[in-house]
């Protein structure tokens, strides 16, 4: 167990390093560098000509004249040691101040979507497998197919339209007007929860459909396993047989997917944020990327990825706790 834990932990650290390198490359990819944009913005907007010397000065000031590995090292140590992600080119403020609460809103959104996914996919998947070829099973399969094939922004638009025309209120945003700029308080949390369900449904639908199919398929496999009949032959009540054995085992793949779920949900966040105008990290990321504000975009990418990598680590540990075959190194 300890060995497994250490293995996964080291792998998590390596992954984080890898991810940070990839993101650093993405940041440096656009033609021209930060210095050029900075110089033009600072100096040209002040009506001055940008000279070659200015550029060299700016480059030196930001350490851009150093080789790439050194630049990466500076960038990452600033982040780790000082929490300094650089300055947003778009807004001229430190990236740290820009992101603030937004990353937590995104995580709250993703967590809600995951809870929703589990709450729907697991019981419906079990039902579908137990009552295979029933009307309910066909209905679940049909809705699952639709959920998988409808782009999530479309679902967002449909829900938005529905809330405007039928409910008479816009489902967009994460807060009501009076709470949008307010400090955190209990009523604000309640207000957030009231708004959270629409984006959570939008984000979670495809994933729910996916897990529903997985759950159903694994359940069908497991129900045919001999140990189920063996348990029945021991005189165990049917519901206990189902829940103690096949359901329990069919949960393993779902748990092992937790990290990737988080990734998929966060990945979908920018698109949904755009349609539902959510003030979260996804929307900021999109804005940053569209404007090629790479420090801001990179910072958000890094934060999101870090959370996903940690999520993968946690789901690995949970899986080991659930499945002795993994815990004891049997594959």
């Amino acid at each position: 167990m300890l060995r497994y834990f250490a293995q996964r932990f080291i792998f998590m650290i390596i992954t984080l390093l890898f991810v940070s390198v990839v993101i650093f490359i993405v940041i440096e990819l656009p033609p021209g560098d930060y210095a050029e944009r900075y110089a033009y913005r600072k100096l040209a907007s002040a009506g001055q000509d940008v000279t070659e010397q200015d550029m060299i000065n700016v480059r030196h000031e930001f350490g851009l004249d150093k080789p790439a590995p050194v630049r990466y090292f500076n960038w990452i140590t600033d982040i780790i040691l000082h929490g300094d992600f650089g300055e947003s080119f778009l807004f001229n403020v430190p990236v740290r101040n820009m992101i603030g609460d937004r990353i937590w809103l995104t995580m709250a959104l993703a967590s809600t979507a995951i809870l929703l996914t589990y709450a729907l996919a697991i019981p419906i998947g079990i039902f579908s497998a137990l009552y295979r070829h029933s009307f309910g099973d066909y209905l679940a399969t049909f809705i699952g197919y639709i959920g998988l094939s409808l782009p999530n922004f479309m679902l967002a638009l449909v829900l938005l339209y529905f809330s405007v025309t039928v409910l008479g209120s816009s489902a967009g945003g994460l807060f009501s007007e009076e709470f949008a700029e307010a400090a955190w308080s209990w009523p604000r949390v309640v207000d957030l929860l009231e708004h959270l369900w629409v984006p959570a449904v939008v984000l979670g639908t495809a994933n729910t459909a996916f897990h529903l199919q997985t759950m159903r398929a694994t359940m069908l496999d497991e129900l045919n396993q001999l140990y189920v009949d063996a348990a029945r032959a021991r005189g165990i009540p049917e519901w206990k047989v189902i829940f103690k054995y096949p359901v329990r085992i069919a949960l393993n793949p779902i748990v092992s997917y937790l990290g990737f779920d988080l990734g998929k949900l966060v990945a979908g966040a920018p698109v949904v944020a755009l349609v539902l105008s959510l003030p979260d990290a996804g929307q900021l990321l999109l804005q940053a990327l569209l404007q090629q504000d790479m420090f801001l975009g990179g910072a958000i990418l890094l934060m999101i990825s870090t959370m996903i990598v940690i999520g993968v680590f946690i789901s690995d540990l949970m899986l080991a706790a659930l499945d002795p075959r993994i815990r004891l190194g049997e594959t």
Binding site: T15, V19, V22, P30, G263, L285, M294, L301, S305, I308
Partner: peptide, 17 residues
């Protein structure tokens, strides 16, 4: 490693670049 990088944001990062 590749699977632990969130895909759409990475696409977006690369596409934005």
């Amino acid at each position: 490693l590749i699977r632990s990088v969130p895909d759409i944001p990475l696409f977006m990062g690369l596409a934005a670049a």
